[in-house]
């Protein structure tokens, strides 16, 4: 069997974001990077399936981006993926979800992947489009937001998370794509021996120009901070003083402290 997992590298979301020179995305300097959180669940699920199926199964991890994304790829390899495709694209951030999906679909088209795993959304752009669009472009079955996954000889049984804690149970046949939601599993931490082993795994480097066949369908006109609503009080400074200030406010503005 052939499995593919698509991962995106995103900045640490606790960073301060400043618009880039064009004012359409964030300035990438001085950011710490890591694997998109939702994609960690996708990798873990793919690795678990890879382990269950054993010999004869191959798990490829794919990421589109500049050279820095190799760090995220290496993490996925250390978690248990067999090999990787780094679609080299320093301008990945300026591509719309349709283009990102089309790059993945073009890569996957003649490779006969049985199951493709993606995250349900990326934390920085958060369009929740790429996974489903890849499936549409490949013409394969797809379900989204899964919090449960079982596989048995060509059949997938997935649990979708709906609003308010309700779940929907779905069955489909491979080839298929699933988009993974938080809580699907407990992503493992790569162990040192596995990090060492991962160094020997193959990372194919493919220039994006070889795979990009589509024009963008949408344009980002601007990237900016939210218009502050104001009203709220911001307290900063020494913790001891802050405690007294907060207690005074709570006594004044609420009935919960006397």
């Amino acid at each position: 069997m052939k499995l593919l997992v698509c991962i995106k590298q995103v900045p640490d979301l606790e960073s301060r974001f400043k618009p880039n020179a064009e004012g359409v995305w964030y300035n990438e300097t001085d950011l710490a990077w890591r694997m998109n959180e939702y994609d960690e669940y996708a990798v873990e699920q793919a690795v678990q399936l890879r382990e269950k199926l054993g010999e004869g199964t191959e798990l490829t991890v794919l990421s589109i981006g500049s050279d820095r994304v190799v760090e995220a790829i290496k993490k996925a390899l250390a978690m248990g993926a067999d090999n990787a495709a780094h679609i080299q694209d320093p301008a990945a951030a300026s591509k719309d979800p349709w283009q990102i999906a089309s790059i993945i679909a073009t890569y996957a088209k003649d490779k006969a992947f049985d199951i493709i795993f993606t995250g349900m959304q990326s934390q920085d752009r958060g369009s929740a489009q790429v996974g489903v669009t890849v499936a549409e472009q490949l013409g394969i079955a797809c379900t989204t937001t899964i919090v449960g996954f079982e596989y048995d000889s060509g059949n997938i049984r997935a649990k979708r998370e709906l609003e308010g804690g309700i779940k929907g149970i779905v069955k489909m046949k491979t080839p298929a794509l699933v988009t993974c939601q938080m809580g699907l599993n407990v992503p493992r931490y790569p162990t040192l021996p596995n990090i060492m082993k991962a160094k020997k795994k193959e990372i194919a480097v493919i220039p994006v120009a070889d795979l990009l066949k589509e024009e963008a369908l949408a344009t980002t006109a601007s990237f900016h901070p939210p218009a502050k609503k104001g009203g709220g009080i911001v307290l900063e400074g020494d913790v001891g003083v802050l405690v007294d200030q907060l207690i005074a406010i709570l006594k004044d503005k609420t009935a919960v402290l006397r």
Binding site: P11, L13, F17, V24, Y26, Q123, D124, R125, G126, E215, A216, L217, A218, T219, T220, A221, S222, F223, H224, P225, P226
Partner: peptide
């Protein structure tokens, strides 16, 4: 000029325009 959407875990905003 477009539609306003959140990004970066709701810390920032983008204005997006369909082509």
């Amino acid at each position: 000029g477009g539609f306003e959407v959140g990004c970066c875990n709701a810390k920032m905003r983008r204005t997006v325009k369909p082509n």
